[in-house]
Nucleic acid binder design. Sequence first.
DNA 1: CACGTTCTTGCACGTTCGTGCGGTATCTTT
DNA 2: AAAGATACCGCACGAACGTGCAAGAACGTG
Lengths: 249, 249
Amino acid sequence: MLAATRRDLLLERLRTDGRLVAKDLALELGLSEDSIRRDLRDLAAAGLCTRVYGGALPISPATGDYAARTTVATESKRRVAAHAASLITRGSTVILDGGTTTLELTRAIPTGLECDVITHSPTIAAALLDHAASVYLIGGTLFKHSAVATGAAAAEMAQRVSAELFFLGVVGIHAEAGLTTGDPEEAAMKRLLASRAADTYVLGSSEKLGAAARHAILPLDEVTAIIADPSDGADLGALEQHAQVIRVP
Amino acid sequence: MLAATRRDLLLERLRTDGRLVAKDLALELGLSEDSIRRDLRDLAAAGLCTRVYGGALPISPATGDYAARTTVATESKRRVAAHAASLITRGSTVILDGGTTTLELTRAIPTGLECDVITHSPTIAAALLDHAASVYLIGGTLFKHSAVATGAAAAEMAQRVSAELFFLGVVGIHAEAGLTTGDPEEAAMKRLLASRAADTYVLGSSEKLGAAARHAILPLDEVTAIIADPSDGADLGALEQHAQVIRVP
DNA sequence: CACGTTCTTGCACGTTCGTGCGGTATCTTT
DNA sequence: AAAGATACCGCACGAACGTGCAAGAACGTG
């Protein structure tokens, strides 16, 4: 077998099995483990797999949505979340949207900070259990994909609250498409929550900038500001023509 | 199995079970507890879990006293929870109370079981995210100590639901004092939830039997049955004069 | 065809990593 | 306070790793 063919076979195996074990491959292909290791080393160097002790794994660890969840918050996400958290002052009332970025924001809130938090995300509510913040949970039908309460009951409850700040998580922030997300029901809920707060801040970690999803939440000019991380050189100029952009350092 | 794969598996377990027990994992994976402990230590160092005595817990659900209690799911609690979970049938609607025992019940529900769950506990709602069950979350003011929504808004929402089963968690089950808990507001909420279900089952792990707290929830004769674990030789006879008692094997 | 170059492969060596075990320290529970 | 469970530390052993080296194959060139 050609060495190049073998590399392809390894990659295909990696796709189907989700992992490569040096020992097994050596036995199966009738080669020494050294050769397999060399292959794995080269593939890893080419950025096609991740080398681990005993074999190799795909670049994105594991499979499916599990990967999305365990993915450690990107540095960008953390920076944006930290800055957003710094806007919360003692005694203020804030609404926290659902999502991984707002969860990161929740973790960035000082444990001892006394404030009022309103959220429709049970995940965020649970994360605030050991905080001094008092929590008002908006109930309703749980939308599994993004782990937030939605529906008529949630809307009714949301309509009765009001806050100073709303931290909005989105899927995409685009100069023309505005703020977007993947589900219409979710979009409506976000819109409603925004209407219940005096100021709305959008959490714009780098992967959101320039992206757009199917369902519009709000146009850019209806939010107070976008907290954005310009580190990847995204074009913030286009956004700034429609909304105020806060650059995190 | 690759060591790296094992770490991923642990993280996935952590997400589905909400906890990792070193002893069990060692037995299940055929490794020494030391290796598992090393894994847990590394994962904790990477900020992916929180190390606790006996295993590890997710980062988010706090490190406060509530989290501490979730670790020590006694064998008794597990048995009672498992039996309670077996009462839930496909397509049925159940109300789950908050608390550590009902959280254990939640984990005992088969992931693929299609049913409707109503709960006022964000922790339980979060634990059901990867289940087939559809979840209706009752919102309201979050009562930190037991991590459930209470207050007027919660009561109003609870009044509108109805279910076949209600699984009630309590602090004490006493022949004379009846079912009791530590907070009056919480007691009222439990009472209300019980009125919304056709049948109410009390989760009576061994440490509850014979105990009594300050605030009464219901007299014993107003519940369908107490699911009790008689393993520690508690006096079930006295209870049986007031309520039906289901002994778990 | 002859020769040198390059690439691949397997082996040997020292190094690193993962694992289990014994001992000791610490925590939990009675 | 004592007993049991759990955790951490250091050690030893084996597996996996990387490197250097030599043998062989494939290739290009004269």
